[in-house]
Design a protein around this nucleic acid. Sequence first.
RNA 1: GGGAUCGUAGCUCAACUGGACAGAGCGACGGUUUCCUAAACCGUAGGUUCCGGGUUCGAUUCCCGGCGGUCCCA
Length: 567
Amino acid sequence: MELSEIVKHAFEDAFPGEDFSFVRVVPATDHKFGDYQCNDALKLAKRLGRNPREVGGAVAERLVKCAVFEKAEVAGPGFLNLTVASDWLDSCLIGLASKPSCGIPQVGIGKRIVIDYSSPNAAKQMHIGHIRSTVIGCAIDRIFRSLGYEVIADNHLGDWGTQFGILIKGYRECLTDEERKNLTVANLEKCYVLSAAKAKDEDGLWKDACRVELVKLQQGDSENLALWRRFIDISIGEFERMYRRLGVKFDTYRGESYYNKMMPGVVDKLVTAGLAVESEGALVVNLEEEKLGVAIVRKSDGGYNYTTSDLACVASRVAEYAPDRIIYVTDDRQQLHFKQFFYIAAKMGCTTKLVHVPFGLMSYQGRAISTREGNLIRLEDLLNEAVRRAGEIVKMRADMDDALVERLAEQIGIGAVKYADLSHDPATAIDFNWDKALALEGNSGPYLQYAYARVRSLLSKAGWQQGNVTVADGFAAALAEPAEKSLALQLLKFPGTVVRSAELYKPSILADYLFQTAQYYSSFYQNLPILRSDEPVRGARIRLCSLFGEVLKTGLALLGIETPEHI
RNA sequence: GGGAUCGUAGCUCAACUGGACAGAGCGACGGUUUCCUAAACCGUAGGUUCCGGGUUCGAUUCCCGGCGGUCCCA
């Protein structure tokens, strides 16, 4: 039985007739207080108008009689400090070790989630500003899958709009034959910049020509459509190269263009429902009463806005997948937009839970990242530099053949970049900094990978292989020292941490937990003998190491960070 | 002008949704390798949690009012 349940029963026994759904047991904030604590006697005392220490005392009295607790006492104003019996702890650890995926509860079985993330603009190279949506989205994706949810990862590419008129015109007139033949995203970007610059010319001829190309494309002109298709394919090809390096995989690439033909229908429905009204030639949904301003659904020139396209997108996803939830991972500038469109979607009868996970925009040198600011760092350059730096250190440490060095450097460098982002709460804005993004020491990806490699090395020296020693032999002999007991208690928190991380859409909670866990392990490893200790302590400590390794590997996999067996 | 969001050690960030003495990393200072991988470990220094009120046994957390940064809308 869960600890919270046991304590809840004690409350019920001591104070019959009250509601105790609020009672919960949490890990002790400090090990000197015991293993776990419960602060809810204070809440109950307030409700009953009684002395909190007396209330706590009545509960503690019942808890000490229970075999689970070695100690249960009231401290301070009325905290319940709980120390669990080592038998009980041992059985929890055995339970954790014998469950698949380190005991992550399968709460999502039978539920489906669509998650929309990364979503770069086609015909542009990915840059460091794309890391956050991609990496945070990927982690949330993996976390929900681990909980048993069926997840559809969709990349909502920016693949439609005025830029394609500029691109098509530029493609025809700003590129050499050679460039047209070996078309790359870099070339597309270049031709866009040249063409856009010409469109700003005063006579406006170029600009008009771009518009003509755009209209032809929108009307389905086969030549322009084929060009557009080619631009998109080349873009996706290049994005996928990045995604492969980052360990990101999408189930679908449905860009804005996919929903294009559904827009008029959406607008019709909004008008029929009486939500959208004419205003200065445009069609708008007035949300002033909800303090959400005004959402334009069709501009005065007849073009559609994101609100319309996102409404079409929701309708399409609901019809196709009937998901329980749709999660959008975008930067926090779009918060108003999401509030508007969620509100309208609900008004239109959408009952699917829509969630926006906003993250702080990444800046560089204190300014927003953009071509105009001239502070754009290509994602590929960042990854290459990360791998280069990791490679230098790998080479210094050991004699390995080049292929192995290269592979390790890739795993470590990319791990560093991903962890640097994931270890922050998504809500915080990040100002990009080479040294921080590529940190290899302290609270960093490589610290965790290193801890994993060390535990694997130790286990292999111990002759440990999966399944050759039964976990039923237990951990009881490895709970006496504070350093090992702390690690054991920390490992038991893993399933709950994954759940909380998912509930709050914050991979940072998991990242933080894994770092703390690795710190407990490093301290344990450094200060207590493992292989050199005597049985039965030796076996129990080895089992504890193995459990740590499994938790770390599982957790890092949820963050999309690889765990090399040897560094 | 309206709204969102953030403000915590020199720097970068945590703090399990209101709990005990606010914790980590980096940086600084000092210590630990004939010993299971030193990308590590151990220790020291560093705080009026932006300011002022309020709610309560208890506030970094919740409420109100300022100040400052960033962003969105008009």
